[in-house]
Design a protein around this nucleic acid. Structure first.
Lengths: 210, 210
DNA sequence: CAAATTTTTGACCGGTTGGACAAACGTTAA
DNA sequence: TTAACGTTTGTCCAACCGGTCAAAAATTTG
């Protein structure tokens, strides 16, 4: 069992202000990256002075760390829900849809994560090699079972998971490029509808057992 | 026709040193992002003093801009080669393979590009809306022709292109995550072989005309 | 209310950064 | 050789940045 710092007892104001700061920091970090963001920018976005912000988080890194810890849990939730007992094709369809919905509804979280990985994941490497790897190994086994039973085509489950991550997160991380190429004709909702339809076709046809 | 600055006349030393600087800047920028990188770091990587570097590029932004301009050309080359006359499935397979090879052989370029897009593409937005959009529109038409002729499944050619970009670039941009999940068992070559095999299966099965 | 505690802020500090500049050094060609 | 031109560097600066601190203001508690 790992040693955790004793649960800090927080006042009402502390709880509220910390949330405000984290929200503001998510906005700023996801748009400019960790090093590109300044405490002043976050403080202004949070509607308080810099020393005031530093009263709640003593270091810039502490904000980022708190943000990343919360992020990984919600980020992996869809994969956790991938269930052994359901119908494989239905399970995969749901997973892709949930992941795409996260890209639509939480693009800042996606970009924050992408930024961290792009920089070599200096702050969450242990989580990737631990929690993340364990979860993926687990779900890869589930998929291998489906393949053995002829429910989906035999292929590499790890790269299947990677490609689902890549295609769905692309719509959050590369949003400006997607918008630039598609033009303004179709709004955000339309883009995501089209993407959902395409990805379902691609993966479900691509994985149909031969 | 757009007005270009008169072609600057450069000495041999200027040509060489500018190349050295751009190579060093690619290394530094792709690892730490634009704002995370300092001129000193680039100068050190290029083996010269900071004022010396600033003699060849007067501003940090000039280096980045030059890098980005060169990048887009090489980056879009594979898509340019996608040919109307060849066999559609063969063309698509070649495109996916070439794109994956670029992720393997030029990961720094991929990360530099990803960084720029993630930050909202502040410096290359015009290129995305111009050159890039034109090219994608053009190739989307080619694919629509293939669909009309029943050569590949009817689907959205834009999202098809996005998904090829996303899946292939993922192996450069999210390399640390891929390595963390797959573990050290299989080297870089093995990873890319597996990825190539998987992506070919996914896309070629997924696009087989019904 | 009054004391104790928590919250907020202005002023400040040391370190870093992008960039300027002039002087020194090297190269080239008449 | 020498003047003109190209290259390199040490030094400097103003702006910025993360973070400290003491003191004021607000809130909680008895």
């Amino acid at each position: 069992m790992t040693m955790e710092a004793a649960a800090p007892r927080r006042t009402r104001i502390q709880q509220e202000k910390r949330e405000v700061i984290l929200e503001a920091a998510l906005e700023v970090f996801s748009a400019q990256g960790f090093r590109g963001s300044t405490i002043d920018q976050i403080a202004e976005a949070a509607g308080m002075s810099k020393p005031n912000l530093l009263y709640y988080f003593r270091r810039k890194e502490d904000i980022h760390e708190t943000l990343m810890q919360r992020l990984l849990d919600t980020w992996l939730a869809p994969l956790r829900e991938l269930d052994d007992v359901g119908d494989p094709m239905t399970e995969l369809r749901s997973y892709i849809r949930r992941k795409l919905e996260m890209a639509r509804d939480f693009p800042r979280e996606s970009r924050l994560f992408a930024n961290e990985i792009l920089q070599g994941a200096p702050r969450i490497m242990p989580l990737l090699e631990g929690e993340l790897k364990t979860l993926v190994d687990d779900k890869a086994e589930v998929m291998k079972g489906w393949m053995r039973n002829g429910k989906i085509a035999r292929t590499d489950p790890y790269h299947l998971i990677f490609s689902i991550w890549a295609t769905t997160q692309h719509y959050a991380d590369f949003d400006v490029q997607v918008r630039a190429v598609l033009g303004p004709d179709r709004g955000a909702d339309g883009r995501f509808e089209d993407a959902a339809r395409f990805l379902e076709e691609l993966f479900l046809n691509g994985l149909r057992p031969q």
